[in-house]
Amino acid sequence: MEAKTIVQALRQALTEEMKKDERVVLLGEDIGIFNGAYRVTEGLLDAFGEDRVRDTPISEAAIVGAAVGAALAGLRPVVEIQFNDFITCAMDQVCNQAAKIRLMMGGQVSVPLVIRSPVGATGRAAQHSQSLEAWFMHTPGLKVVLPSTPYDAKGLLKTAIRDDNPVLFFEHKLLYGATSPGGKLSTSAAELDEVFEPAPEKEYYLPFGVADLKREGKDVTIVATGCMVHKSIKAAKILKSEGIDIEIVDPRTLVPLDIETIINSVEKTGRLVIVSEDVTTCGVASEIAAVVADKALFCLDAPVKRVCVPDTPIPFAPNNENRVIPQVEHIISAIRSVMS
C-alpha cells in the first residue's frame, strides 16, 4: 500500500531496510511497545523482535554512544531521539565522536549511523519545539536530511540507512500525518497540498545532495525546507492571483547541499527568499544566502530575504508561538519586499 503520510513512509523504509540487512537495528526511548512518540516504529517490535528494536534508558548520550560503538563493530544502527531538543544531551557523541572518528582514524573505519528525530513547533514550548538542523550543518562529518513529503522521506531514509556516514535525519512533527499520543495537533495529506506526494510501496532510493523543484516559476526563488515547503506553496498560490510566479526549491538534504540547483533557479528569477524554521542567526538561511552571495551575486535584482524564527526561544502561548514561527503571511511579505 502506498504511504500517504510521512509516518507510514518512514515505517516502510525501516521495514524494507531491516528485512534486507540484519545489521540494521533500532534503538531509542519508547520505540518498542509504545511504538515511538510519533508511532514511526509501530509494529516493528512484533515484526523484528527485541534484539533489533531496543527500548533504551533515558540516556541520550549512552544511546548515541552505544550506537557509535555498535557501528564501529559492524552494525548499522538507527537511533530515534524522541525530540531533537534532546540531542543536546548527546552532543559529544554526535559531534566529537560520530562526526570525527573517520577523519581522526585516517579513514580506517566509517560510522554508519542514522539519528532520526522530530523537529518543529507544535505547542510544546521552548524545549520541545526547536529545529536544530543548522547546528549539525556546522559539524563536518555529519550529513543532514530534512524531508517535506512522504515520497522524499522514504527514499531519503533508505539512502540514509545505506550511507556509511553518520546522518542526522530530521522529521517535521506537523508533516508526520499522525497525532502523537495525547497530542492535539494532527495533519494529513488532505490538509496539505499536491506536492505532499505519497510514497509508493516499491523500493527506491533518493540520492543525497539533489534538491527537488517543488514548484516551477520565473519571478522569485523560494528555498524552503520541511514544513516550510508547504507554507511556501500556500504563499505561492495566493500570490499567483497577483501575477507573481514563484519557484520553490526544496534542498531535501542540507548536507550535502545542492548548490547548483539553487544557483540555477536564482539565475532564472533574480530574487531569493529563504524560508526555514530554525533561528535566524547562523542558520540554514544564512548559509544559503552566503553561498548565493558568493556564487551568484550579480544575478540578484533584490536583496536576499530570510524568513526564519527570530532569535528567541520558542514561547508557549499559542499567539506568541504563531508570531515567531514563519507563517504564510511572513513569506508573502518577504516576497512582496523583493518584488517591490
Binding site: A73, L75, Q93
Partner: peptide
C-alpha cells in the same frame, strides 16, 4: 577503537561494541 580526547566518551562506545558482538 581509539584513544579519545573527550573524557569517558569511550565508555558507552564499548558498551555498543559489546552489544554488536552479542548481536
Amino acid at each position: 577503537l581509539g584513544a579519545n580526547g573527550i573524557v569517558a566518551a569511550g565508555i558507552p562506545q564499548a558498551a555498543g561494541a559489546a552489544w554488536a558482538c552479542r548481536y
